[in-house]
Each structure stands twice: as structure tokens, then as C-alpha cells.
Design a protein around this nucleic acid. Structure first.
Lengths: 191, 191
DNA sequence: GACCGTTTTTATCATTTGTTAATGGAAAGG
DNA sequence: CCTTTCCATTAACAAATGATAAAAACGGTC
């Protein structure tokens, strides 16, 4: 049994050993090198993912060719559910490894079937969806009503140390500012 | 049978007459006057809603007491699913009628049970969730990477005429700007 | 350790957006 | 019908953020 995944699941919504075994049976380990794109916009994808090690991001490319960071994920978290990042199993987003990463993945449809027959797993799945929305709403409120400085302060509170692990371009884009502004704010806050 | 709700449902994910009848059996009509808060943050709520007439918004109140508009809803749309705007049936958001409104509501748990046993209804439910996320991601990208002027232009494309139906305070907050900025942009764009 | 390409910082200037305050107009309620 | 309140606009100024360019720091490689 994958203890690490069990801990991630329980962190969201605690389920019984027995229920977890059904999930465990679906898991496969995958690794990607820094810089690899493992989910590609407009391409097929039918998996759910647990991030066991490393950092990755979801992003979109705007007309100017810039990568807009939507979300950042660190170890021991769950990537956005397949049902909401795909349409007919075609991805609406890109996901890229920012450091070397290790994922546990499983087939989304098989998981969906577990949700249907198992109440605990269904509750777990709903909790994941809900967390996804909550974090989106939080981010939205931040972008709509906080200054860039306040957003950076919150970001640091939520992701301590991440500023030292990944390129500032990814963080700046996540915060909705330029790297130049980020640099200015870093300096200002360090005084 | 409520034809209007059937049309709203089919607009998201077409389902059979037979499946819709199960939903139809759960529906109740509700009306609220302009200004009424019909879902309150930290209060109990266990309903799903179809907006049949009027305009309403979801919002949060920041520490300064300002209402931050999260989403705007117009007639013939579905309000954000209960599962993602509540935790243990306690609401995380406020919803307020901006004009007089008419809603068709149903018990969320009863609907959840329909999702479990009926494949079409489950697909419909998933499509609703997905649309919710897509619109959130779109909004997020807008706030993170577009100027206020571009956001207003997109807003007008998505919600024509709404600027003439509801207070600009609600729209400005939705766009993440002040009403003064909105007024400036309106003037600039009208030239 | 020197070199290359990339990332981060710094500086300057332009632009956008916010703040405060004043005005006029529209809607709501007595 | 009048008053009161709220809302939208405008102006003047301040603050925040973006654009461009150049310098410095960093990381990987041979």
C-alpha cells in the first residue's frame, strides 16, 4: 500500500483502509524531468494525479506566447481533478514539471466508478473538488482586491520557501505581475 | 414539466425527457426582491438553483466592509453547484438578488442521489462543475494578464446590456477595479 | 576556472489605476 | 411633490505597475 498517497488522501478527507485499498489498486508511479510537459492543452488525458515529490505548475499560453501560471503544486498535494481540467478527455490546460517530479497517477474513469459505488470515496472526491474551487475563489479575490504586495505576502505564507526553489517568472505570472515588479517588491519587503 | 428549466439543462448537457422528469419532480419556485440576500455566508444552505429571471451575484465582504463580486448570473443559467460553494452545507459565499429574481430550486442531496443512479444526470452534473471551473479559470487569467480595459471589453462581449441593468459598483468589483476607473474606461471606449 | 546563456536586479520613464473630493442626476420613500 | 439617499461622472493628484534597457548574478558545461 502506498502510505504517502494514503496520507495525502486523509489530509483532504479521511477514509477507511478498506476504501483506500480500492484507490491503491489503481495507482501507477510516474516521474518527469524538470521542464517536461506531462499534460498538454488540446491533447488527450484521462488520469488523476497525486504529486509525491517536486514542484509543477498548470498554465496557459497567451497570444503573445507567454506562459500564464494558473496554479502551483508542491509535494503531497493532489493536482486539479481530471473532470474539471478536460472536456471530453481533452485537456484545457498544460502541466509542466518545474523541478524533477514524482507522481502517482490513476485512470480517471476507474476512479469515477469507485466514487459511484463507494460513499467514502465519493465524499473524498467532492472534498477535492471543493478545495479546488475554494482555492480558485481565494486567488480570484486576491487578484481582484489586493495589491501585488499583499498578494506576494499571502503567497509566501501559503508557499514558504518556494521562491527559492522555482524561477521567479513562474511566480510573477501566478501573482499577475511582471518579474520586474516582483523583484521590486522582494527588495521592498526585505527592508 | 418546467420547460424553461429543461432548456437550461439541455443547454449544458442534453438529457432525455425521462431523466429530466426526475429533476423536475424536485423543483420548487422561489422569488426574491431586489437587494435580498438569499444565500448567506456561514449560514446553512442545501439547495441547487436555476435562475429563471433577473440578475444576481455571488460575493464576499472584505475587512473594509466592501462587497467583492465573485460572479454575476443572468436569467437562464445555473448558479454555482452547492457542493463547491458550501462546506458541510454551510455556505462560503453570499448571494444577493440585484434585480427582482425568480429561481427554481431543488434539494442538493436529492439531486446528488439522482446523479449516483442516473448516468445522464451524472454527466449533466459533471458538465456543470466543469463549466464552473472553466469560467473561474477564464476570469483568473483575465485578472492576471489583461488590463482593466481589456477585461471590460470581454465583459461586455459576455454580458451585453448588463451594464445598463445593474449598478456599476457590482460590475467594477467583478472586474477588480474601482467605479471611478470603470467610469473612465467607459468614457474612453465610447469615443 | 572560464565561458555561455539565462535569470534577477536595477534604473528611468511612461502608463495605468487608486484616492479624495466635488457635482449632478436618478431612484426610493415619505 | 419634496427630501433623502445612492450612484455615476469628473478633476487633480498620488501611488502602483508596466516597458525598455542595461548591468549583475547565477547555473551549467566543457
Amino acid at each position: 500500500m502506498n502510505e504517502q498517497v494514503k496520507n495525502i488522501v486523509d489530509g483532504v478527507f479521511s477514509i477507511s483502509q478498506k476504501s483506500f485499498c480500492k484507490i491503491d489498486g489503481l495507482l501507477t508511479l510516474e516521474t518527469f524531468k524538470k521542464g517536461e510537459i506531462f499534460i498538454q492543452n488540446t491533447k488527450h488525458n484521462e488520469k488523476e494525479y497525486f504529486l509525491l515529490d517536486g514542484v509543477c505548475k498548470s498554465y496557459l499560453v497567451n497570444p503573445d506566447g507567454d506562459e500564464i501560471t494558473i496554479s502551483l503544486f508542491t509535494e503531497n498535494t493532489i493536482l486539479s481533478p481530471q473532470s474539471i481540467r478536460t472536456s471530453k478527455n481533452i485537456s484545457n490546460l498544460n502541466f509542466k514539471a518545474i523541478t524533477d517530479i514524482t507522481l502517482a497517477s490513476m485512470n480517471a474513469e476507474a476512479f469515477e466508478n469507485l466514487r459511484i459505488v463507494n460513499r467514502e470515496i465519493r465524499n473524498f472526491g467532492n472534498a477535492v473538488l471543493q478545495n479546488e474551487l475554494i482555492s480558485k475563489v481565494e486567488k480570484e479575490i486576491g487578484l481582484a482586491s489586493l495589491t501585488a504586495k499583499e498578494r506576494l505576502i499571502r503567497f509566501r505564507r501559503k508557499h514558504p520557501l518556494l521562491e527559492n526553489r522555482i524561477p521567479h517568472t513562474d511566480i510573477a505570472s501566478y501573482l499577475g505581475i511582471t518579474t520586474i515588479s516582483l523583484s521590486r517588491l522582494r527588495k521592498e519587503l526585505s527592508r
